[in-house]
Design a protein around this nucleic acid. Structure first.
Lengths: 102, 102
DNA sequence: TTTTCTCATCGTATATTTGCGATAAACTAT
DNA sequence: ATAGTTTATCGCAAATATACGATGAGAAAA
C-alpha cells in the first residue's frame, strides 16, 4: 500500500530505457521485432501463421510493442500492416548502447 | 490454463535477450546498473542511501540482476560487494546491438 | 443488406512482479 | 556467549502480465 506512495525519481532516460526493456522482456516480442526488422513489414495474419499463439494473444503483444513506440501500424483494409518505428528504434538502440558503454 | 501447455520454441538468443531485457525492465534496476558501471562496485548499504526504497526491496532487485547474470556479489563480511559481471555484460551488449543492427 | 475477412478488445483465470515490515542468517567484535 | 552490523529471505497485499475464447468493429465483396 505504501507502494503507491513511493515516488522515486529516476531520470527520463532510465524510465524510457526501462519501458523499452519491458517491451523486449518476452521472447515472442523479441521474435516479432526480429521478423519486422528482417522483412520490413508484416501483417498480423502473417504472424499468426508463424507463431503458434492465439490471434488475440499476438494482438496483445503487438499492442505492447506499439505502446512502447517500437512499432507502428498502418491500416490497409481489411488488414493492418505493422512496421518498425525507425525513429524510436534508433532512440532505443542508442539508450541501450549508452548503458552498455564501457 | 492452456497457458502452461503452450510451449512455443524460441531461439536461445531470443530467450536470453528477453531475460536480460526483463532484468532491465524496471527503472531502479537500470539505475543500479548505471551506478555499478560508473563506480566499479558498490555495497548494498551504499545503495540504500542513494535510493529511497526499503533495504529488502533493494536486495530483491539485486537478486534479480544477479539471477540475470548482470552483476555478481563478493562476500566481504559483514558486507557484500556487488560488481558488474563483465562477461555477461558483454554478452548482453552484443545481443542488444545485434537486435538493433541496421 | 448481408456476408466475409481481418484485427482489436473484453472477460476471465493464473502467474509474476513489486513493495513493505519482520525476521533469519552470517560474520565481527566485545 | 552476547551484542552489533549487514544482507537475504519470508509472508503478505496489490498491481501487472500472459494466455485463451468469445465478441466487437470496420471495410470490402456478394
Amino acid at each position: 500500500m505504501s507502494r503507491a506512495l513511493k515516488k522515486v525519481n529516476y531520470s527520463e532516460d532510465e524510465k524510457q530505457l526501462a519501458l523499452f526493456a519491458k517491451a523486449l522482456a518476452h521472447p515472442v516480442r523479441v521474435h516479432i521485432l526480429k521478423l519486422l526488422n528482417s522483412q520490413s513489414c508484416c501483417y498480423t495474419g502473417d504472424l499468426t501463421e508463424l507463431i503458434p499463439l492465439a490471434q488475440s494473444t499476438i494482438s496483445q503483444h503487438l499492442k505492447a510493442l506499439n505502446e512502447a513506440g517500437l512499432i507502428q501500424g498502418e491500416i490497409m483494409p481489411p488488414k493492418v500492416k505493422y512496421c518498425l518505428n525507425k525513429k524510436k528504434w534508433t532512440v532505443a538502440k542508442d539508450l541501450f548502447a549508452d548503458l552498455f558503454d564501457q
